[in-house]
Simulated assay, not measured.
Amino acid sequence: MTIRLNGSDHVLPGPTTVLTLVDRLDLGRTDLAVAVDGAVVPRSEWADHTIPDGADVDVVTAVQGG
């Protein structure tokens, strides 16, 4: 299955949850936000939210500033 991850095509071996994707990316950060097809997925739903084939996924880190 293929998704668009932060603007680039990314191939996954099969159905994947947001949590599995974040773990696979091995970012080692807890201040992440994930949106699937433009909708933010709350962290409490990462383990249950399956990313559909062809989805547009954005993974971003929180940044302080002003």
Rank of each mutant, 00 (worst) to 15 (best):
L12P: 06
T16Y: 04
V18Q: 06
D58C: 02
I51V: 05
G14N: 06
L21M: 03
T50W: 06
V57Q: 05
R24I: 00
T61Q: 14
L25I: 02
R43P: 09
A62D: 01
V57F: 05
H49Q: 11
V41G: 13
Q64G: 15
G65Q: 07
T20M: 03
H49R: 15
N6E: 05
L12N: 01
V22G: 05
A47M: 05
D58G: 00
V59H: 09
L5Y: 07
T20G: 12
A39E: 08
A35N: 11
D37N: 15
P15H: 02
H49L: 10
D9A: 03
R24F: 05
I51F: 02
T50I: 10
D23P: 11
L5M: 08
L5C: 09
S44C: 08
V59R: 03
I3D: 01
T30V: 08
T20I: 00
V34M: 14
V59A: 04
L19T: 03
L12V: 02
V34L: 14
V36C: 13
G7W: 04
V41W: 14
V41P: 14
V22E: 03
D53G: 03
T16P: 08
E45R: 14
T20C: 01
S44G: 06
D31N: 14
L12T: 00
P13K: 02
T50A: 14
G38W: 09
V40D: 05
R4G: 05
D23C: 10
V34P: 15
G38C: 08
G28H: 10
L25F: 05
D26M: 09
G66Q: 04
D37K: 03
G66I: 09
T2R: 15
L25A: 03
T17L: 10
V36P: 14
G66C: 07
G65M: 05
V36G: 12
G28P: 14
V57E: 07
T30L: 12
A33I: 15
A39L: 03
T17S: 15
D53Y: 00
G14E: 06
T17K: 11
V40T: 13
G54M: 09
D31M: 06
G65K: 04
V57L: 08
S8L: 06
V11Q: 15
V60G: 12
D23H: 13
P15E: 12
V22S: 06
G65D: 07
D48Q: 11
D48K: 08
G54K: 07
L21Q: 07
L32M: 11
V36A: 08
D56K: 02
V59N: 04
D48A: 13
L19N: 09
A62V: 13
L19D: 13
D53I: 00
D58R: 06
H49K: 13
D37Y: 01
G7K: 01
L21R: 07
V22D: 03
T20W: 00
E45V: 01
P15I: 00
P13A: 05
L12C: 02
A47E: 12
T17R: 11
D9M: 00
A39W: 00
G28D: 06
H49S: 08
L19Q: 14
P13V: 00
P13D: 10
A62F: 15
R43W: 12
Q64S: 15
L32R: 11
D26N: 14
G54L: 07
I3H: 09
R4F: 11
L27Q: 10
V59D: 10
T61R: 11
S8H: 12
Q64I: 08
A47T: 09
A62K: 04
E45C: 11
D58Q: 09
A33G: 13
S44A: 14
G65N: 00
A55V: 00
M1T: 06
